[in-house]
């Protein structure tokens, strides 16, 4: 009995610091965000008014917000599939042989640990319309030279390319972990059972056994690309003409440039709702189809 009581006290004491920090720094501010979303609070204002769903109504009417949502979806729609398929392809290619495995893994992973802001600056130089090496190369080949980051036609595409470059190595590493977890004997069994080539082996063993990894990578990729902010803040500020306005950047501008905290909080809630929906889809709908127990 004494040990149980001691255990209870120790357990409570050990969770207490984390519990207090959780309450003050995570739970209460999150709830405050939820409440703020229904007010017209502006930073520095002494009073705040309860305005119900007005913020959300404004959002629906706001062309800028619509563009922001559309841009975010396009960005996610470009970056997620390309970086997943690319990451899977790289993982298969790197794991296919022993030679150069560690070296190439490091090369493709490098962007993950590189300071995003600094690399964004490097990309800005790379994609510079007149002095950038990319356009210099296109010019040398006699091709057209787009204004990459400063034209509303190409800006989202350019940002997505940077996004893919940033996350492809991350996905590759996750897929490599998934690949090493596949029992070698299954490949041997597939060979004996009549798998004739790499594609047969992939269809029969690799792809189905990567199911849980792929689902996970899909969710995390979507959430990560949904959070795109750094490159936009550094390179385009949402421009030109809102062509690269994305959800978190809109939220940042509304909140910290225009100081409209209520409206910004409402945008944050939309962002949160999308994130939660994605996670829900992962756990409820898809998990059952990729876990075979």
């Amino acid at each position: 009995m004494r040990r149980l009581a001691g255990e209870a006290v120790a357990g409570a004491l050990m969770t207490l610091p984390a519990g207090i920090a959780y309450l003050l720094l995570l739970l209460l501010p999150t709830l405050a965000t939820v409440l703020l979303a229904f007010t017209d609070y502006e930073l520095g204002a002494t009073a705040l008014g309860w305005i119900g769903l007005d913020n959300f109504r404004e959002m629906l009417a706001d062309r800028g917000f619509g563009v922001s949502v559309r841009n975010t979806l396009v960005y996610v729609g470009l970056v997620t599939p390309i970086s997943i398929l690319g990451g899977l392809g790289l993982a298969l290619l790197v794991e296919a042989g022993a030679k150069g495995r560690a070296f190439f893994r490091a090369v493709f992973f490098l962007p993950v640990v590189s300071l995003t802001v600094a690399m964004a600056a490097a990309w800005q130089y790379l994609l510079h319309p007149t002095i950038g090496p990319v356009n210099a190369a296109l010019r040398a080949m006699g091709l057209g030279t787009p204004f990459w980051l400063s034209s509303s036609d190409t800006v989202l595409l350019s940002l997505a390319a940077i996004g893919v470059w940033e996350s492809i190595g991350f996905n590759m590493v996750l897929f490599m972990a998934g690949l090493t977890a596949i029992p070698r004997e299954l490949y041997a069994a597939a060979e004996v059972d009549g798998a004739r080539g790499g594609f047969d082996r992939f269809r029969l063993v690799t792809w189905p056994l990567l199911g849980p990894t792929t689902l996970f990578v899909l969710t995390i990729s979507m959430i990560r690309s949904l959070r795109v902010f750094d490159t936009v803040a550094v390179l385009t500020q949402g421009g030109p003409n809102k062509a690269s306005e994305v959800l978190l950047f809109t939220m940042y501008q509304q909140g910290f440039t225009y100081l409209r905290l209520g409206y910004s909080a409402a945008i944050t809630l939309v962002f949160l709702a999308v994130v939660l929906a994605l996670m829900w889809v992962q756990t409820q709908v898809l998990d059952k189809r990729v876990h075979y127990a």
């Binding site: 029992p183 299954l186 041997a188 189905p208």
Partner: peptide, 20 residues
Amino acid sequence: RPAERDIAMVFQSYALYPHL
């Protein structure tokens, strides 16, 4: 190749395809 040898093998870990 193993597929062409006309053999069948039972593995220590059984090596069953978990998704099938």
